[in-house]
Write a protein that binds this DNA or RNA. Structure first.
Lengths: 241, 241
DNA sequence: CGATACGTTGACGGAAATCAACCCCGGTGG
DNA sequence: CCACCGGGGTTGATTTCCGTCAACGTATCG
């Protein structure tokens, strides 16, 4: 089973010993492919496995009574979006694949064993959930206090930075196969407004976005537009390509 | 040093052994009083202590370039708002007292010792940071997808529920000594609009709010108005009074 | 008793939502 | 082979929720 994405992720924070790498690499897991828009875990579920993104993209979301959806996070290969289900039994939100996505399902007891036997990995994972929380906070700030323009720019900055951290960029380009409706639900905007905002970013020559691929043409400009400061992602010595 | 609030909080999730209670109760800490609006920790700091709210209220916030402030969470007695600084060295946001507030400052190495020696307490604390994250997600949903009216109602529901969990309510009344400007910054609204929304809640006889004290007149009504479902707070068998 | 902070109210403006077309393109089935 | 279909993207017209500005009331406090 391919846990290399997870390894890359854990090591994007700090290095592991050979033994720790082995412990992670030998985790027993079941591979499962999910279709685009298919739920992986649903609000109210009590999962007995955690889900590691191997290939593709997932998101957490909730739907409010008015029928509107809020996406609370995007997840890229190496992420374990429902790691918290180890400690919190009932899901307060759903987890879905955004595109056809390969997940590795790891039983709770296996993860608990890994954590109990490897305190350093446990700390690393705890830290990872804390970075998750930091990302939530940034999204909250964006939705609450930034203009639509800054919000979209910030999201693209964050996405590219996270993708780079796990080695999924080529130069200033990476996959971003989300529909504008998905982006709208993530930013608390309407699709129409997202569309107009992306056009504005294109006209200002900050990005190119076609065929599910995002290219940052002007990193400094985009960063400034999005008021983006990567500190909260806590990456060790990341550089812009 | 009074860590009883922390004990109540930890036990609002699950019970501790006598030994664990002793370990928590005997934590060495320094008491410090902060004035209203005084910063406890600032964005960019690298704290070497964690701060436990003993009496009063604190919040996390950031200020965006336009000068607007987003408050990301309210913290009540028993909370350790910057526990994450154990694992994440540089603060990506500030922490401030909202009213005159008594904090217990506990050195990092003491907390690390507690965690290393008491795996169950460590899990409890991890879990606590995960509930924190769940609260962030709920706020995000509110700011992104709920009307101002529902947002305010939701916040009051959440606040009362959390206060009740640590024994700080009397019937349907609890302290809520925040200015409307603070509430506005928490909800991503303007003070003017918060004012009008609160009036609406009053007219509909859902709450009374005067002199820093909140009374819920109609819990069902308020809960419905706020689309509030307390699942995400993960409290064991909490009941409405 | 003035200063200051907080709450309240009204008038006005604007960013983004909503509504409603329309286009483009890749599938798919007759 | 092409008509049909549906999802995604784009555009314009209109509406609305909420922000901004500005004034005024009220309470607390030195």
């Amino acid at each position: 089973v391919d846990t290399s994405a997870l390894l890359r992720k854990l090591e994007s924070i700090a290095t592991l010993t050979a033994e720790e790498r082995r412990a992670v690499a030998s985790l027993p897991a079941t591979i499962k492919i999910f279709a685009a828009n298919e739920d992986i875990v649903r609000e109210g579920d009590r999962p007995s496995v955690v889900a590691l993104v191997v290939e593709g993209f997932a998101c957490r979301y909730v739907v409010v009574p008015s029928g509107k959806r809020q996406i609370m996070s995007f997840h890229i290969p190496g992420d374990i979006p429902d790691l918290h289900s180890l400690f919190i039994d009932v899901m307060d939100h759903s987890l879905a694949a955004l595109v056809p996505t390969k997940m590795a399902l790891i039983p709770h007891n296996v993860m608990c064993g890994l954590i109990d036997d490897n305190p350093r990995i446990a700390h690393r994972l705890w830290r990872d959930t804390l970075i998750d929380a930091a990302i939530f906070r940034q999204w909250m700030v964006g939705i609450g206090r930034r203009s639509a323009f800054a919000r979209v720019a910030h999201t693209f900055c964050e996405f590219v930075t996270r993708m780079r951290a796990v080695g999924l960029t080529e130069g200033n380009t990476c996959e971003l196969p989300f529909t504008q409706a998905m982006i709208a639900d993530a930013l608390g905007l309407s699709t129409v407004h997202v569309n107009r905002t992306i056009q504005e970013l294109r006209i200002k020559n900050l990005i190119r976005l076609t065929g599910g691929s995002l290219t940052v043409c002007d990193w400094d400009g985009l960063q400034q537009a999005g008021e983006f400061d990567p500190t909260y992602l806590q990456l060790k010595d990341m550089q812009v390509a």
